[in-house]
Amino acid sequence: MSKLTDKNSYTVIFAIIMVVVVGSLLAGVAQTLKGRISENERFEKQQNILYAMGINNNQGATDVAFIPATEVAEKFDTYIKKQVVIQGDQITEDPEAFLIDIKQEASKAKDDPNYQRRLPMFIGEKDGKTLYIVPMRGNGLWDAIWGFMAIDENLRVEGVFFDHAGETPGLGANIKERFFMDPFTGEELMSNGTFRGVTVAKGNNDPRNNRKDDHRVDAIAGSTITGDGVTAMIRRDVAMYIPHIKKLINEQQ
């Protein structure tokens, strides 16, 4: 005696129905919500860019509070004066620059060595200072990490914002906490005219981060690989922008 659920034909039919039902359910939901999700993601990107500039609703010493989604588009237009795309030596203005997917650009550049990568950059103004905000993207321990860095006219860090897809909660995930991000502010990026970036260093002799010209911030204990990922990301992605920022600063003066 065999049960109905053991029959081959039943198994095949069940599998087909399951695939169709689950597939169409997921695809349907994903399609209907796509608009809302991409809108939320766009707001998030604007919030992150403004956060790196130091425009946020932070009140306590530990909270990371963005401009609320309802106001962010307006604030973004107020503070971000220009969005530019850098391709080769060309710097062109492009109001859609923040839609560029830097992950795709990086993989295109990797696949095809002749491809000239499009680099989006945001030029903002705060308290009369011009700030250059650059995006970056790299790998942490488990998955991707990314962020924005606001750079001022003296090539110092004005502020940063980091985020991640799946770093270990309580360890690497803390790169998006204030105690990790705040010490970047004021760090020098350049040393004697060459780019050195900011290293996330263990055994830092400067745990309160009083020295701003040592190119180092204190690492998070227990998350070496995420920290190294941040260092590498800054060294690779921010470095690409430095000559262009220098050029823009010279043009302004």
Binding site: S107, K110, W142, A144, A165, G166
Partner: peptide, 9 residues
């Protein structure tokens, strides 16, 4: 998942 996240070429 690691293979995907690390973008093995």
């Amino acid at each position: 998942l690691f293979m995907q996240a690390r973008e093995i070429p």
